[in-house]
Design a protein around this nucleic acid. Structure first.
Lengths: 224, 224
DNA sequence: TTTCTGCGGATTGTGTAACAATGTTCCTCA
DNA sequence: TGAGGAACATTGTTACACAATCCGCAGAAA
């Protein structure tokens, strides 16, 4: 069987394709937060018209990956500590309620059909950690949380959460907290148990922990 | 002093102005859910170019007021019962966490500086109900919930919640549950007390109640 | 009859070129 | 030093053309 990547569908319009390309460049850290994205330059570099660039940038702006202001253009989004906290609060709201819904449906001990995809995602995270490829680790980590949220079966909560993923990935593209390999996978296995046991409190503890680590990593002089 | 409306600022670009105009038309129920929004027609009617229409429609699509698909154009969003439930779940996630945050800060009895704007919003709601103007009632109602969420001081949660407002207004533009005048204001005064006392449970009860009313109103043959 | 196929027409997506509107920089002059 | 204002850079908008896609419908095939 042909192994499928996360996204093997090609976007139908060139504007969407350009948005994909720009998103990838931003999330890979190829462009710094705050760096301006000039329409003319992008049009030239990608061989498309300025109109197409504009629609792509508008799409990324609605994902909050870039900040756009009229007559001032678009820049890669900058996430200071304040934004980080606000973001984690929103994430907490979504993840907390997702966990509550799942527990409401299945009780404190979630059935295998629910936990299996989560465990699989954690296993992927462990493999990514072993590889040492930081972008891959952050993607695998995002997938763990996405899978936990998906278990609630609430499409809008899942979608809102997915929207935040990009922002987190952007954040982590430029900040690498100091984790020994395997620690993340281990931590998230314990997280799953906690979440089934104590729900929202576990979610908030987990997010507070990650917020602290990110802030610490950011203030240390370990620039990318 | 000159009383200021909610929005006395004029959008700087004509695309944003057009988006405002279209949003108003949609929320006033001037166009039915599912109705197509043709670029050429809108360009002609508003005296702007098709490109400007496209950016305005893209903005409304990112607010979920219109559904857009490549090569198929944009239509006014349609909210069936399934979407309604998913939407209320997301709303519940945000409002629940907002209330929890506020209680975490101020305890079970919120201080006057917090409750005062909420009471003011409920008073506005009572006045709107007395006027019988349904769109005004729905806007006042949205403001009550917005103010409750704002009390948490979490900008991202507040913003996510504000984004949902449009969708609710769109929904209510075409469904009017059977409420005696003053009932909504009364209900929300009680809601505020409940929310301080029992937090998330009160939020969920309130939303479930409103969901049931909307569904009931929708299945009855009271077309707009 | 039912289903498939292809053909126009309608509508959206993209490109090119130009100009208007706004932001930004830097120089002058008081 | 700082206010004003000319250049310049960049974005917003328009017009027009054409390509890409969707949609409805007539006719062919089973």
């Amino acid at each position: 069987m042909t192994p499928r990547r996360r996204d093997d569908h090609v976007s139908p319009t060139t504007a969407a394709q350009l948005a994909d390309a720009l998103r990838a460049r931003i999330l890979d850290g190829d462009v710094e937060p705050g760096a301006p994205l000039r329409e003319e330059e992008l049009a030239l570099r990608h061989g498309v018209s300025r109109h197409t660039v504009r629609t792509a940038l508008a799409a990324l702006a609605s994902e909050r990956l870039v900040e756009a202001a009229a007559y001032r253009g678009a820049r890669v989004a900058v996430l200071d500590d304040e934004s980080l906290i606000a973001l984690q609060q929103l994430r907490g709201a979504l993840e907390t309620e997702a966990v509550r819904l799942t527990t409401e449906i299945h009780g404190r001990s979630w059935p295998d059909e629910v936990t299996m995809p989560i465990h699989a995602a954690v296993d992927d995270l462990a493999r990514a950690e072993a590889s040492g490829d930081w972008p891959a680790i952050t993607r695998a980590h995002a997938l763990v949380h996405r899978t936990i949220v998906a278990a609630a079966g609430s499409p809008r909560i899942a979608e809102a959460h997915r929207l935040l993923e990009s922002e987190i990935l952007l954040l982590l593209a430029h900040v690498r907290p100091d984790y020994p390999p395997g620690a993340l996978a281990h931590e998230h296995r314990a997280y799953l148990v906690d979440v089934m046991g104590s729900g929202g409190d576990a979610v908030r503890a987990h997010l507070d922990h990650s917020t602290a680590l990110i802030r610490a990593a950011r203030s240390s002089p370990d620039a990318d």
